[in-house]
Design a protein around this nucleic acid. Structure first.
Lengths: 342, 342
DNA sequence: CTGTTAGCGCATTCAC
DNA sequence: GTGAATGCGCTAACAG
């Protein structure tokens, strides 16, 4: 293996018979460098394929042009779509993205954060997935000057930027509309208690009923820790109620809805003729089912973009020493009609 | 914002009244440091929450405990699954992962590679998506001592580790089996010429027919640059041939197969009763269609794991100065029967 | 066993 | 306008 070295500032300086600092300044468009010199230096830099060493730059400037992203898992497509949005913005701005997952425990999650912070990333976008009895490590990271941006979930204790999708509103408005259109008997398949989004979506459902003066039937709220529980939950419901008693089934997410769809097919219940079915998230899968799933769109990619802008803005303000006002950005969710609803 | 600085080696040294290098050595378990000193230093490091600065380390050692991964896009699930495999291994070994996409041109792809190399990543896993008339920049990166591992595609000109899935074999064996079971009239919906995997899959199809003495009907090879062309391609075929003339439709990938499935439904052609349909890749979507798609499994996550091990091995051998034998790891693909085939 | 020194590549303060 | 010198935080070669 040949070990041909990259050219450095010193190499350039030698080749031109100038001082390193002059070269550095020329490359950085320092005002007090003659444009002639600048041109010459830049030409040579091009020719020698000079690329500044980001490590050295980072060490010097205490700013590494990298940001960290922490996902709970790589299991759902949602994160990948968010990542796409982040990638778009960040690479455009010359940032590299370091990714991590929270593993499967709050300890791993903490470690991932700290690893990123010790890497001196410029900021961290994080989907927190565990409850930490002691979230002070997050504040420590902020204190070290690394901005944190939390996605999808709000922590009252922590002052920071947040990007969340307005799950409540999407569900609330959609269910309200269905009620206006004459639906009365609406089921909700609820997600895990551990997940905050699960709560907002349930709330949206409940509030809509309440506001329209429909009593919430506890039987109609089916709690499923995991999508694998959906079928049995629904089966139980259908042993007590006939399908004629149900107009619409709303779900925690599209995966849940798909499980419901499969069970309904097994029972020869036609969607949407016998009952409407509504997913949540607009996961790509929702276009591959038949009937195609109506769902509530959660703009994953947009959330990534939004988060990136917010984070970069904070980084920028921090560097300039300006003071920064944290923001919580609520992105809209909305009903997306496909084939599984009437 | 409080700016409580991270503690550095110097801080530790001062606090202990020792020299920086002693502290450094103690932390790195240098043999010639008394275990008493080590213990004391480590205790304090813990207490002061000392974390080495990877930038400084990288600058010094020319080696950063990071690896880069370059994807063509964030559009298909396949990459996400590969990433999952990579993540698993790499974080286990204490590496951080920096991701990039190739953007939409060979120039961006080149830039992404160079950006990563200038970050002194320990190695790069890359899905090359464009043809470069001048791939010398890749060799340059290798010459700088950064191992490259290519996924999914082999470049004769470049000596390196490769991880590819044996697409030919999977398709060849599957089609052969179908012929043995009595299928004669087999269609292949072929992917873009730009994509090398497209070629291997076509080859597998053709070879199987040839070996079984079935003449390849050119009409039965439908070329589609993109999945959006599948329906029209198939429509054309069905205007010339009746569905009774076709036993099986094989596809470049699952997305193509899904398009085919939709068209067949429109035409009231039943899958698999009237015709069998075969996807490729085992994308998660294939379990959400109805009928569920039979496909050829491409073990994405395993490919990521495999690539990681190979790359880490090369990094390790390089560091130790041992010489390294490049490998090409072919991962198996195999038929996965679901509901769309008989 | 531990201290001293140098240097990785760069930006920047201070001279001139 | 440009050169010289310093230091970011760390490791390693050289002393002792």
């Amino acid at each position: 293996m040949k070990k041909s070295r990259k050219s450095t500032l010193t190499d350039l300086a030698k080749a031109m018979g100038m001082n390193v600092s002059t070269v550095s300044r020329a490359l950085n468009d320092h005002p007090k460098i003659s444009s002639k010199t600048k041109a010459k230096v830049k030409a040579l830099a091009e020719k020698m394929d000079y690329k500044p060493n980001p490590l050295a730059q980072g060490l010097k400037k205490q700013d590494t042009k990298t940001i960290g992203v922490i996902f709970p898992t790589f299991d759902t497509n949602f994160f990948f779509r968010v990542l796409k949005g982040i990638e778009k913005v960040m690479h455009d701005k010359g940032y590299q993205i370091i990714i991590s997952t929270a593993g499967n425990s709050s300890i791993h999650e903490k470690e991932a954060c700290q690893a990123l912070s010790s890497y001196h990333v410029g900021g961290i976008i994080i989907f927190l997935s565990y409850d930490h009895d002691d979230p002070s490590f997050l504040i420590d990271i902020q204190d070290e000057g690394i901005p944190l941006l939390f996605m999808d979930r709000i922590y009252e204790e922590i002052d920071a930027n947040y990007v969340v999708s307005d799950d409540f509103k999407g569900m609330f408005e959609t269910v309200s509309d269905f009620i206006d259109k004459g639906c009365k008997n609406i089921v909700h398949i609820k997600g895990s208690e551990e997940v905050s989004t699960s709560f907002s979506r349930l709330q949206g459902y409940q509030e809509a009923l309440r506001e329209k003066g429909i009593e919430v039937n506890p039987d109609f709220i089916i709690k499923c820790e995991h999508e694998s529980e959906v079928k049995s939950g629904l089966r139980k419901l259908l042993s007590k109620y006939s399908i004629e008693d149900i107009d619409l089934i709303t779900c925690f997410n599209d995966y849940y809805a798909f499980q419901a769809l499969e069970l309904l097919k097994e029972k020869n219940i036609s969607v949407p003729d016998d009952v409407s079915l509504l997913g949540f998230a607009n996961d790509p899968l929702s276009t591959y089912t038949s009937p195609k799933l109506s769902t509530i769109n959660q703009p994953a990619e947009h959330m990534g973009v939004q988060a990136s802008y917010l984070l970069l803005d904070e980084i920028d303000k921090n560097r300039k020493g300006e003071n920064y006002q944290y923001q919580t950005s609520m992105v809209n969710t909305f009903y997306l009609k496909r084939e599984s609803t009437k």
